[in-house]
Design a protein around this nucleic acid. Structure first.
Lengths: 97, 97
DNA sequence: TAAATATATGAATATCTGTTCATATATTTA
DNA sequence: TAAATATATGAACAGATATTCATATATTTA
């Protein structure tokens, strides 16, 4: 692994920054299993609808989650397997302490 | 993967938060290859000695780096292979965009 | 169409975080 | 021993960030 250029370094930091918040970790955690709509997520992570919506926007902008609309509901799910792998590796690290 | 408890969730977020800063990413990046002393690190990441020292303290507290003393110099290196794996997985994710 | 439900978003605020600056400590060298 | 070098650290400050609150938009239901 050689030295990353400045842009890649910043992108890496931005990526991990998104995993670096417990509300977002909770959201990713529950989305590991299945897709869920915003109010279900808010309920499961014990946060307000507004807080969850703000965090989903961040996850969406970073392309860590995707969504589909069904009537008045919007269902969110993890974008790809990378998100899952990063989450699981972090989890392993914590559990081995 | 089942639902993490509150403490584990917070620990996960704290872990990723540490990777979520470009100065620390640069430090981890150069430590992938070999151990280095503080002033070498400061030079390689283009930051002041003080800034690097503060960041090394954070990395040290999280046990992501270890160090050994040799005379007036203190050599830092990555704690374990987990740090490397998390870094590389993040890097993969960025490169596949 | 009016009310209810689901979601998004801008502004305000409080908290957190990274850097800088000054300085302290420890070690080496002249 | 005095000066130089290597590192750490506390305080201050500026910038970033997460939540809350109020409200807007869209969809469904009565």
């Amino acid at each position: 692994m050689k030295l990353l250029d400045e842009d890649t370094t910043i992108d890496m930091a931005e990526l991990f920054k998104i995993f670096g918040d417990s509300t977002r970790i909770k959201i990713i955690n529950i989305l590991l299993d299945k897709e869920l709509c915003v109010c279900e997520i808010a309920d499961l992570v014990s946060a307000t609808q507004s807080a969850v919506s703000h965090q989903l926007r961040i996850l969406k902008q970073a392309k860590l989650v995707k969504y589909r609309k069904e009537g008045a509901c919007i269902y969110y799910s993890l974008s790809d397997d990378h998100v899952r792998k990063i989450f699981e590796l972090g989890c392993e690290h914590i559990n081995e302490k």
